[in-house]
């Protein structure tokens, strides 16, 4: 029976993969001006719009919760918690999106190389998968327990988001400027 299920599974996976393969859009040229501009815009919005320390602290500030719980009626408290939860969830989604962007940049750039290191590529793929899973777990934690349930998680996620931006910026530097080391050129100043 296991043999039957496995064989049918291989056949079905092949047919489904071919369906998506047939519908696959033509990949854009890596390093094109449009792609670089889009990537830069994504990074800028993350770095300057979402990740600054004061903004993250403001979103997850415990004082706000204490103030609302001490002086507002229950319906306002509930509204406040719902709003903050949505903001926290949106924030983790952005971290996840940034990791996905980084993944896309890395793959897009790595494919230009004829001789890839397969052990490195497999390790990276596993790391990306692990990180995406971790972001997903954070999303679940926020969803189930609210934005104030895990302050440690918030700090960790903020730091992770900053680092993701740095990685994405490094990847972008590879795509756009050769010979310039983004680590030394002040990229770190944008970190959250």
């Amino acid at each position: 029976m296991i043999q039957l299920v496995l064989s049918l599974l291989v056949g079905l996976v092949l047919v489904v993969s071919l369906y998506f393969f047939a519908r696959r859009a033509k990949p854009s040229a890596e390093g094109s001006a449009q792609q670089l501009r889009k990537a830069k815009q994504t990074l800028d919005s993350l770095q300057f719009g979402l990740l600054p320390n004061d903004l993250v602290e403001r979103i997850f500030a415990r004082e706000d919760l204490e103030y609302v719980f001490s002086s507002a009626p229950p319906d306002v408290q509930a509204l406040f918690l719902t709003d903050r939860k949505n903001i926290a969830l949106g924030w983790v989604r952005r971290v996840r999106a940034a990791v996905l962007e980084l993944m896309r940049f890395h793959r897009g750039h790595a494919r230009l190389h004829a001789r890839l290191s397969f052990s490195t590529e497999i390790r990276l793929a596993l790391n990306f998968a692990g990180l995406l899973t971790a972001c997903h777990l954070l999303q679940i934690a926020f969803y189930l327990r609210g934005p104030y349930a895990a302050p440690g998680m918030v700090r960790t996620a903020a730091a992770a988001a900053g680092r993701v931006c740095l990685i994405s910026e490094n990847s972008l530097a590879f795509l756009s400027v050769k010979g310039v080391d983004p680590l030394e050129s002040g990229a770190a100043r944008h970190r959250a």
Binding site: L102, H106, H109, A110, T120, L124, R163, N170, L183
Partner: peptide
């Protein structure tokens, strides 16, 4: 590219 991505990840 691989080294930095791996390090940061």
């Amino acid at each position: 590219l691989a080294g930095r991505t791996r390090q940061a990840l």
